[in-house]
């Protein structure tokens, strides 16, 4: 937008043609797109993470696959850095867009909170979960993503477990897991309603159905995530005396 155009908008609320800006539409759409992208990413991320449940070897192989094996000998952790960078950018962009919806003063927050407590309405309560988890992820997500960018090589059955157990990262991961699962799936539910994706002939019935499916998915993903976290904890606990040593694949032995 040129300076002239934005000055006109500043003064009149409209563009040079006397029309409303198209930006709000784009922002709304982009918020949905980035959200959906991140939700899809998380869906797979947690699934991949849970490879530890199939054993250290499975997790190791998957890690190496993401580092580019077998195309690059031994894998290239910088690929993870790059991937984390893309996600981090998307994450920041999404947070930036979603912030538009946050209560932006005490008065707004107070009004929302009191109203929510009076109303006792499930979808309104879900949004409270979303802003709380969203807010939490500003920090939790940033820590995690930064670490992945800075030390991409420290992913692996032992490295990850040591980080979680011996480096005392597990409380953060526990909170992050809960936040991210709730935020993503509630977000997906919201997208379905927002854009009327599965309205069908009876939007009301289908909304109920969507909500039920989402609740089931939240439960499944929390279970899966917690199981994986427990597995890492167990490995970390057993591995604490060898802290720092890396896992060696069965093939290399």
């Amino acid at each position: 937008m040129s300076q002239k155009e934005s000055t006109v908008e500043l003064l009149t609320g409209k563009d040079c043609e006397g029309k409303k800006s198209r930006i709000p539409a784009k922002l709304d759409w982009l918020q949905s797109v980035t959200g959906l992208f991140l939700a899809l990413f998380i869906t797979f991320h947690i699934l991949f993470e849970s490879s530890i449940l199939f054993g250290k070897e499975a997790m190791y192989k998957l890690t190496k696959m993401f580092e580019g094996e077998p195309f690059i000998e031994g894998g290239e952790p910088l690929i993870i850095t790059a991937l984390a960078f893309v996600i981090f950018s998307m994450f920041i962009f999404h947070a930036f867009l979603a912030m538009r919806k946050f209560p932006d003063s005490y008065t707004e927050y107070q009004r929302y909170r009191t109203h929510r407590k009076l109303l006792k309405h499930s979808d309104t309560n879900l949004w409270f979960i979303q802003i709380t988890t969203g807010f939490a992820m500003f920090f939790l997500g940033s820590i995690h993503l930064y670490m992945m960018m800075a030390e991409p090589e420290k992913i692996g059955p032992y490295a990850s477990s040591d980080r979680i157990f011996s480096d005392w990262m597990w409380p953060m991961y526990l909170l992050l897991l809960i936040s991210v699962v709730l935020h993503s799936w509630v977000g997906v539910y919201r997208l379905i309603i927002k854009w009327g994706w599965f309205d069908g002939k009876d939007p009301r019935k289908n909304r109920k159905r969507s909500k039920m499916i989402i609740k089931t998915l939240i439960a499944l993903y929390l279970l899966l995530g917690l199981a994986s976290l427990t597995a890492y904890m167990k490995i970390g606990y057993e591995h604490q005396d060898d802290y720092g040593s890396r896992y060696i694949s069965e093939n290399h032995k």
Partner: peptide, 14 residues
Amino acid sequence: GDDEGVFGCMSLMG
């Protein structure tokens, strides 16, 4: 077409 209109809606379905 703005945040006072349809883009302000957060789909909370109250």
